[in-house]
Design a protein around this nucleic acid. Structure first.
Length: 606
DNA sequence: ATAGGGTTAG
């Protein structure tokens, strides 16, 4: 089996380079890095003992039957309500708590209402569970009215209650209110925040992308307020990893260990995810080795990170190998696993295989909104819009509610095949069904309108965005500027660009590239070159797209020597010519208009 | 005895 997998890897490795991360590096090299990793990884896994199988004794020792479904809960609850005298509120709380853990928050609320009808009393625990459910259902208003109930009943909210509320506000991005409760706790004296309260706030900072504030709070905790625990460290380590600050994460990781706090599987999963995203396979393997040497065993999440990373690098065959290994090791692949695999096939355009995974999931009863969105995305990206639409209709029949991401995916699909009217219909439809458009929705639609040269409709949409007081960022202006160039409104494009700073916005690398492209097409290469200088001055570094754009622009305007200088610069910086730039260069070479050494430079040593 | 914070996929 392993040998078979190795053969698969060897056979498939040379052609499987779709990595964006290693763009600019010779393809073969990047692949061999991955293969080295994959070999190490597979060999490594086989050399490790399996995770100890849970003894059946502990299962027998469980005092009460565990509730695994909402139906169970309703049945047990019914029986309890009929008992005379009724069981204590503690028993009811246990059921509510378990259903809440299953994330069936509205079920908890209806169970709670049944308690009320049967005149079962409730206590601080009950109400705290209730608040938590309303928080997760985005109904902070009800959460607060439950808080009012405390006072009416003469109950004292405790640190659990306040922490739950703080978490609720943070989930809704209402940081000020969350901080308000926290400060009142500190000032109040009788209910001080504990490590969970601090941990919740740390998470809030991390969600806002403010890692340094999170670390500051950590330091404050260390000073004595209350000692940080593993969860607090995990929160920050994960956030650092998500922001590609893996070195900082690893430093914090060592610091944590020095303080005597042992990492767990979650810590390692975050770190492995972080290094995988950077393409650092060796480091991922090292961490995997390290965790097992500490008797921390990879779980479904760990494997999913590897499956997903391999899929995103185009190595679906290898990812399938990892899935087989999971099964071998008694770790059941879950929705996340299959969704990643499906996405991997979609990325490679192997839609039949993606469809097969989808059907497999269906037969296992493992389908969620993400599964549909992923496959819809696959079909859209390959312009099979009708298949995508069918799936979209099918998911509603299965009782799955399309979310904003699903709508965005399909919207983009319609736009990319030029079906703008369908897109705008869907845009109204999503709002009618209560799915709020987000920033990305507007970007997709605006871009669709611009790319299809429907500038007046684009400007109308932009007007709506302004009227709704939406936060209009640089990405939206990039789309508009490009749209103005596409429709030949060069002057307006330049005006919009020049007016950015007055709106408090900084052009980014994409903005400059769009400007450079537009100016070159208009024949204004010297102005485009001025922007290149401006980028340097403003510390906005050029990417491969910028280089390809200016080089193409110069060649098309017959400024070959200037183009040559930039080609050299591009290669020195580790970027490479894309297909269309390459075509232009090859064309020049055939006309003897450029130094043949240049081709070698671009293509690399033959 | 029962309640609150941390990991993976579109």
């Amino acid at each position: 089996m392993l040998k078979m997998m190795m053969r698969n890897i060897a056979a498939s490795s040379s052609s499987y380079c779709t990595s964006r991360r290693w763009r600019g590096m010779p393809c073969l090299h990047s692949n061999s890095t991955v293969v080295v990793f994959a070999n190490d990884y597979f060999a490594f896994l086989h050399s490790q003992p399996s995770k100890p199988i849970k003894s059946t004794r502990t299962q027998l020792e469980q005092p009460s039957p565990k509730i695994t479904t909402v139906e169970d809960a309703f049945n047990v609850f019914d029986r309890m309500l009929q008992m005379r005298p009724p069981p204590s509120v503690v028993r009811f709380n246990q059921i509510l708590g378990q259903v809440a853990k299953l994330k069936h928050y509205s079920a908890v609320i209806s169970l709670y209402n049944q308690m009320g009808v049967s005149r079962i009393g409730h206590d601080v625990y009950t109400l705290t569970i209730l608040i938590n459910c309303y928080c997760h259902l985005n109904q902070m208003g009800f959460s607060l009215s439950v808080l009012g109930k405390f006072f009416k009943l003469g109950l004292e909210p405790d640190v659990f209650t306040f922490t739950t509320l703080i978490n609720g506000f943070l989930l809704k991005n209402r940081v000020a209110e969350a901080a308000g409760i926290f400060n009142k706790m500190i000032a109040g004296g009788n209910c001080q925040p504990d490590v969970v309260t601090y941990g919740t706030l740390v998470k809030g900072f991390c969600m806002k992308g403010n890692n340094s504030a999170a670390i500051q709070l950590l330091r404050k905790m260390e000073e004595g307020a209350c000692m940080p625990d593993l969860v607090v460290y995990n929160t920050i380590i994960d956030s650092l990893c998500k922001d590609a600050q893996v070195d900082d994460a690893l430093n914090l990781f060592s610091e944590m260990i020095c303080k005597g706090i042992a990492p767990n599987v979650i810590t390692y999963n975050s770190l492995i995810h972080g290094v995988c995203k950077l393409g650092e396979w060796k480091e991922a393997t090292r961490l995997l080795n390290e965790m097992v040497s500490k008797n921390i065993f990879p779980d479904v999440c760990t494997f999913n990170v590897f499956v997903d990373t391999l899929c995103k690098e185009g190595m679906v065959v290898e990812a399938e190998g990892v899935v087989e290994m999971m099964i071998e090791r008694d770790i059941e692949p879950d929705m996340v696993t299959y969704n990643s695999l499906m996405d991997g096939f979609c990325l490679r355009g192997e839609m039949d295989k993606a469809q097969k995974v989808f059907e497999l999931m269906h037969s296992k009863g493992l389908m969620n909104v993400v599964s549909y969105s992923t496959l819809i995305n696959g079909y859209c990206k390959h312009k099979k819009i009708d298949e995508a639409r069918m799936l979209f209709l099918d998911m509603s029949h299965k009782g799955l509610v399309p979310n904003t991401i699903t709508y965005n995916t399909l919207l983009d699909g319609f736009c990319k095949v030029g079906r703008i009217d369908d897109a705008q219909k869907l845009f109204s439809e999503m709002q009618a069904f209560g799915q709020l458009p987000d920033a990305q929705t507007y970007c997709i639609l605006l871009d669709g309108l611009c790319k299809n040269r429907l500038l007046s409709r684009a400007l109308q949409l932009f007007g709506e965005m302004e009227a709704k007081k939406l936060d209009i960022g640089i990405v939206i202006y990039n789309i508009l500027i490009e749209g103005l160039f596409i429709t030949g409104k060069n002057e307006s494009a330049r005006d919009l660009f020049c007016g950015l700073s007055s709106k408090g916005l900084q052009p980014n690398v994409r903005t400059y590239t769009i400007m450079i492209n537009g100016l070159c097409i208009a024949g204004l290469t010297s102005e485009a070159e001025k922007l290149l200088v401006e980028m340097d001055e403003k510390g906005c570094s050029k990417d491969d797209c910028t280089y390809n754009t200016i080089i193409r622009g110069l060649i098309n305007n017959n400024e070959i020597s200037k183009a040559t200088v930039l080609i050299q610069q591009m290669v020195e910086k580790g970027f490479s010519a894309d297909a269309s730039t390459m075509e232009l260069i090859v064309n020049l070479l055939s006309k003897d208009e450029v130094d043949p050494a240049l081709l070698l430079l671009i293509k690399g040593p033959l």
